[in-house]
Amino acid sequence: MHPDGGCARTMDGKPEADEAAGLLRRIAGERDPEAFARLYDLHAPLLFGLVIRILANRGDAEDVLQEVFLQVWDKAADFDAERGSARTWLVVLARSRCLDRLRRKGRREGRELPLREGGAEPAEAPVGTGGLELSEAGRAVRQALAALPEPQRRAIAASYFDGLSQSEISRQTGEPLGTVKTRMRLGMLKLMELLEPYRDR
């Protein structure tokens, strides 16, 4: 059953997914700045929301978003539509850059375990930009996270948004490592089930 009770669709919505993949092909093949600008318009808000959520620092988030899109310009040919959507690829790039930066700054363990009720919240209030509306898939992801038992949700969020290892989560919560691992495993299995309608085909 679809979490919203509506029709199933992929993470991107098919037309947008096709458009983004086409834009990446144009960037790789034709070095087309207009395709780059359109891809930026389509996905920068999602990625900026993600990186600011992970880094909790607006300046760092701007730097990382810039790095990600420069990487897209340089490496668009690496995108393989057979392995997933353009958005999945971009999210992986952005999150990887964020984790690198967190590690370099060595500030993960000083952070509080994240994720308030119902899902992630922005680490900073938007300054002069305004938050954008959540997509249907965004709402579904929040609902799926909210459906998890809180310890599972907190462990997954600490790992995903703060880059904490299982050992680090164990130290912060005082819970045995095996318990943390089990919680994350069960939580991810449940999310894979709940979010199946939103995955790329």
């Binding site: 993470m11 920068a44 808000p45 999602l46 990625l47 900026f48 929301g49 993600l50 600011i52 959520r53 999210v91 952005a94 999150r95 899902g119 992630a120 919240e121 922005p122 938007p126 930009t129 305004g130 938050g131 954008l132 509306e133 959540l134 997509s135 898939a137 965004g138 579904a140 992801v141 929040r142 996270l145 948004f161």
Partner: peptide
């Protein structure tokens, strides 16, 4: 990633 608020 979609759990984070999109931000311009």
């Amino acid at each position: 990633a979609l759990a984070a608020d999109p931000l311009a």
